[in-house]
């Protein structure tokens, strides 16, 4: 069973665009583990019960139509319990609080970049009762480019008809200054003929 509530104003702009998500889920799975004669005695039923609560609150700052900075906090609390005829029940728990900032910028038409930073603190309780508390910072950077897919049906190679497909992406990054520049591009592509890859 899953229940989730979310709030977002799709018309929002400017410096006030709060978003809120709350979620609860409870998943109970039981799998029969029958005996397999003559040697294996099954453990009856394997049962796993997972309960999760999660929440996220953030605000999106619209610097312009295409440039935004999002800052927020998220949280989850999970508890998993396992049992069968011969083992358990055993339970482990994890909870995590995260603070994050993420910028999505479009410096030029069709070129978008995204980078962000987050700090997480996770508290974990293992099945033995062992407790751990871990925290740390993490960052991310992504540059969007183009993704391409070209399909050609019935291309003739002598008397054989072939279907071709070329797919991949191009990433570009450029920075210019008075009289100088740095440009980098990366292209990854794959060509397939009649399904699998091909030779040249």
């Amino acid at each position: 069973m899953t229940v989730s509530l979310s709030y977002v104003n799709t018309q929002a702009s400017g410096m006030w665009d709060p978003r809120l998500v709350l979620g609860w889920s409870k998943v109970d799975i039981a799998v029969d583990q029958p005996d397999i004669p003559p040697r294996i005695v099954g453990p009856g039923v394997s049962r796993g019960l997972n309960k999760t609560f999660s929440a996220r609150a953030e605000n999106r700052f619209h610097l312009s139509d295409v440039n935004t900075i999002t800052a927020g906090i998220d949280y989850y609390d999970k508890e998993s319990t396992y049992s069968d005829l011969t083992y358990g029940p055993v339970t482990e728990k994890a909870s995590n609080v995260g603070l994050y900032v993420q910028a999505r910028l479009e410096p030029a038409e069709g070129r978008s970049t995204s980078f962000g930073l987050r700090w997480d603190d996770q508290r974990f309780t293992g099945i033995s009762g062992w407790k751990g508390d871990f925290s740390g910072l993490s960052g991310n950077l992504s540059l969007d480019g183009e993704i391409f897919l070209t399909k050609i049906d019935d291309a003739r190679d002598r008397v054989i008809m072939n279907d071709l497909e070329s797919r991949g992406f191009n990433l570009g990054l450029g920075y210019g200054w008075e009289g100088g520049y740095l440009r980098a591009s990366y292209s990854q592509s794959k060509i397939r003929v009649n399904g699998p890859g091909t030779d040249s």
Partner: peptide, 13 residues
Amino acid sequence: LGTPPGGVLAIEA
């Protein structure tokens, strides 16, 4: 019908 180019990188400054 095509060459397999894989990954190609260019940097220029």
